[in-house]
Amino acid sequence: MNTKKNINLLNYVELNNLQILTIKGSDSKIFLQNQLTININKLDNSMHFFNAFHCNSQGKVLTNMHIFKICENNYQCIIRKNILQKYLENIKKYLLLYKVKISLNKERKIFGILNIQKDQIIYKNFKNKNISLKKRTVYFFQKNIFLKFKYMKKYNFLILSKENIFFILKNFFIFENLYLKNSIYWDKFYMKIGYHIIDMNSHCNLFFPQQFCINKIHAIDFHKGCYLGQEIINSLIFKKKINQKLFLLEVQSNMILSYNNLLEFKDNESKKWRIIRSQIILKILNIKSNLFWIQVLLKNNFIKKNLIRFQKYKENNIYINKIF
């Protein structure tokens, strides 16, 4: 089948590596406003979801997240499961100051929808044509939620109540072109748009938001009031002290790549290979046979023409796919 010409094609991914957290209570709004890098007031109309950072008092990132409002004093966010326990332990002390409760939402499952060719596929199943409106990014259909990425067309979250999963997916099968993809496709999407993957406990409390492409994902509101770590985050922006950027690297290798492998670059003047200092590999993704994508933080003086390789596997040259 030629999928490029098939306008009814719908690829979906069951995102078991992500977790929905529910934040409820009479102080939920003020708690989030005082903690997160975005202006929570902008969620009041329940028309949008936002990307956000939750930082510690030193301005270091605990986690990044997608967050949206369900109703008054009821919010939900999506974070990586691998760091969930570490994150909850880190914010315990802040919860004591507010009338708020954070709990795992076990009633809903998250699906990623890739490469939707026609919005009709979605709104026919949910009986809501407003889903094609460009300015809106969150939609509610009874107990189900649909989130649209405004900066990347045809990629969306579908959050389904467990009681409706079978019924909804059965409806999609009417189009006869519903394909279950491996979850690596969603991480590939994240890496492609420069959405940083904080997936290891050792990476919590390690980075400043400015080390990521904050302008593209709009995860910081510089016009809101005080929040945890704001003074340090703002001072770093004005002083321009951050000298690292997010890079997407690509390498072909039949070796087992490790997050501890050292990277080295070829010095253009001396023509010698030198170890890259202060490198931090966020994610290594095997996207197909022997082809890997690597999301990594490097000093911002690297350019696309620089030659990079693993010190351990000298025969495999690494190419800079994208600089964010």
Rank of each mutant, 00 (worst) to 15 (best):
R108P: 00
C226N: 11
I131Q: 13
N205E: 09
K118A: 05
N144S: 07
I122N: 04
N115I: 08
F172T: 11
K143F: 06
N215Y: 05
L104S: 10
N125K: 04
I121D: 06
Q210T: 00
C226Y: 08
K224Q: 09
K127T: 10
F173M: 11
N130H: 14
F157K: 05
F207Q: 03
I121S: 11
K170H: 06
K118T: 09
K153T: 06
I145M: 13
L95H: 08
K99Q: 14
H218I: 08
Y94T: 09
K143D: 14
Y123N: 13
G225F: 03
N171W: 01
L95E: 12
K118D: 03
L133E: 15
F173A: 09
I233M: 04
Y227L: 08
L178T: 06
K109H: 08
H218V: 06
F140Y: 12
I214P: 01
S103F: 07
C226M: 10
K224I: 09
K162V: 05
F146M: 10
V138K: 14
I220L: 01
G229V: 08
N234S: 14
E163H: 06
C204N: 00
I168R: 08
H203Y: 03
P209K: 02
E231W: 05
K101V: 08
Y179R: 13
I131V: 15
K135S: 15
I220P: 01
I145D: 06
L228D: 04
